[in-house]
Simulated scan of single mutants.
Amino acid sequence: MSDNQNLLAEQRRALILDEVRRRGGVRVNELTRRLSVSDMTVRRDLDALARQGMVEKVHGGAVPVSEPSSHEPGFEAKSALETSAKEEIAVAAAGLVAPGGTVALAGGTTVFALAQQLLDVPDLTVVTNSVRVAEVFYTAQRAAAAVARPRVGAATVVLTGGVRTPSDTLVGPVADAAIRSLHVDVLFLGVHGISVEAGLSTPNLAEAETNRHFVRSARKVAVLADHTKWGIRAFSSFAALADVDVLVTDGGLTAELRAEVSQAVPELVVAGDEEGADGTASPGRANPADTAAG
């Protein structure tokens, strides 16, 4: 945050709101130091943000506005959020996929963005329970067929079947049975929420169970989550951070959180970063030793 004492109220409040979203909460005494303003000024700013429904005031500070842990937004609503971060994460995650491999792509808009990055990876086998992800590959194959140019090495897509959720993900006993019978090299998984305490979580109980089967089926688990997912605890947890091999996130994740994540996850990939956690040039990937340095 800036130390400029002459910040306009609107600028201060925008900075406060950004800090609340990034960190999952702020304290009044921290804000007074960072903004170089009085305690009263910070409290007025928090009051204004609370009246606008942007934050929820708590004793000594503010936290993001809470919604029911079982609330599940639809695919279109989620698609409009953090679009640039999702694209960066998708590009970085695509680097984890080798030609000829078998990958699982679970539901979610960030995994959907990854699917579009994998169209030119030859000879993939893609297992998915996402209607939207399957459509990405089917549409590309139909377009190639329409101009009589079959895609050489086009992906083989295995769609699990199941009951469709608001996020266009297939879940339930049919999906679970299909996934239990398969083994994949890498699972790419989106999440509704992620935290040290609750691990990976989703508002949908059936989706949580299907995701558990996905995690068990994979040799390597890669989670794709932008920084706004951090600190959110949805209704049902389906995996601990210790179950994750790679976390791919964006540059909005603070240095403190990167260090915290590195204690639990073997590999942290920060999409779009030009510097590694140790301060040296990096393509966006930090190993645990580097990341722990902050």
Rank of each mutant, 00 (worst) to 15 (best):
Ala104Trp: 00
Ala92Ile: 07
Val111Ser: 05
Ala80Ser: 15
Lys86His: 08
Thr109Arg: 00
Thr109Cys: 12
Pro99Val: 05
Leu105Ala: 00
Ala93Val: 08
Ser84Tyr: 12
Ala106Cys: 10
Gly100Cys: 03
Ala85Pro: 02
Glu88Tyr: 12
Val97Asp: 02
Glu88Pro: 00
Gly95Gln: 13
Leu81Asn: 11
Leu105Pro: 03
Ala90Trp: 02
Ala85Val: 02
Gly107Ser: 13
Ser84Glu: 15
Ala104Lys: 01
Gly101Glu: 12
Thr102Ala: 08
Gly100Ser: 09
Ser84Cys: 05
Ala92Asn: 09
Val111Tyr: 04
Gly101Cys: 06
Pro99Arg: 07
Ala80Lys: 14
Lys78Tyr: 00
Ser79His: 06
Thr102Glu: 07
Ala93Tyr: 07
Pro99Phe: 11
Glu87Ile: 10
Thr110Cys: 13
Glu87Cys: 11
Ala77Lys: 11
Ala93Asp: 09
Leu81Asp: 10
Ala104Val: 03
Val111Ile: 07
Glu82Thr: 10
Lys86Asn: 06
Glu82Lys: 15
Ala106Gln: 05
Ala85Met: 04
Thr83Leu: 14
Thr109Ala: 08
Gly101Pro: 01
Thr110Pro: 03
Thr83Ile: 11
Val91Glu: 13
Ala104Ser: 04
Ala94Gln: 09
Thr83Ala: 14
Leu96Ser: 06
Ala98Tyr: 03
Thr102Leu: 02
Ala106Val: 01
Ser84Gln: 14
Gly95Cys: 12
Gly100Met: 09
Ser84Gly: 14
Gly107Met: 10
Ala98Gln: 15
Ala104Gln: 00
Val103Gln: 01
Leu81His: 13
Ala90Asp: 11
Ala94Leu: 03
Ala77Thr: 09
Ala93Ile: 02
Thr110Ile: 05
Glu87Arg: 15
Glu88Trp: 09
Thr109Lys: 00
Ala94Ile: 03
Ala106Thr: 07
Gly95Asn: 12
Ala98Lys: 14
Gly100Arg: 04
Ala80Asn: 04
Ala90Lys: 08
Ser79Tyr: 07
Leu96Val: 02
Val91Gly: 06
Gly100Pro: 04
Ala98Leu: 13
Pro99Leu: 04
Pro99Trp: 06
Glu87Lys: 13
Glu82Gly: 01
Gly101Phe: 01
Ile89Arg: 09
Thr110Glu: 02
Ala98Phe: 10
Ala80Phe: 09
Ile89Glu: 03
Thr110Ser: 14
Thr110Ala: 12
Leu96Trp: 07
